[in-house]
Write a protein that binds this DNA or RNA. Sequence first.
DNA 1: AAGGATTACAACCGCAGAGGA
DNA 2: TTCCTCTGCGGTTGTAATCCT
Length: 213
Amino acid sequence: MAAVADQAQMRKGPWTEQEDVQLDFYVRLFGERRWDFIAKVSGLNRTGKSCRLRWLNYLHPGLKHGRMTSQEEQLILDLHATWGNRWSSIARRLPGRTDNEIKNYWRTHMRKKAQEKRNMRVSSTDASSISSSQSSLTEPMEIATSMFEEEDGGVMGPSMDQIWNELAVLDARFNHEGCEEEDFDQLMQIPPMGSLWNYSDTALETGGPGKGH
DNA sequence: AAGGATTACAACCGCAGAGGA
DNA sequence: TTCCTCTGCGGTTGTAATCCT
């Protein structure tokens, strides 16, 4: 009963600077676990879920802010072509970037690209040239945009045939580099999950991320 | 300069899986 | 074994900032 009342009073919406400071303090104190507990003891009128999201997507010390670099963009395109909308998996390959950030980036940028490409085709080609242009795609950007072709109004995913086709292309590329999926981490020179985000902050050295469990 | 359209990003929601009691 | 809580994920929405006419 009281819990229901509490839920009703929970704060929503944008975080204030004060809330950020408070959350930061308590996460450093208790670690990145037990978000409901942190939400309670911190006195923030937020749900644990909200606290976790704020921390992971904004306050985490390892996060990069600002625009994607061209390398990151390229990597996102490649990985999305391989994995589809598995944003968290993609994010693990991009240190300092969150799944949320990548998801947003994809939605805004790729949608735009797909639309531009579509407009170009409509104005310059007939139906038969579309299939031939698909088979000649060589750049990840082209692959991604072609896989993200839209129907009017809505975003449309690629067909399974398309997915497997493009996977074959990427596969061939990785094999050309002499690496398997398991070697991908090495290829990308990304540290393993646990050490993905290294805290420089000494306050966390005793605890650190992923310590819980 | 004003106002509408578009873009970029933050945050919420619902669901599913893992793990503990 | 079942239930409950916590965590993580992907989809979606809301809004501030920027661009364009």
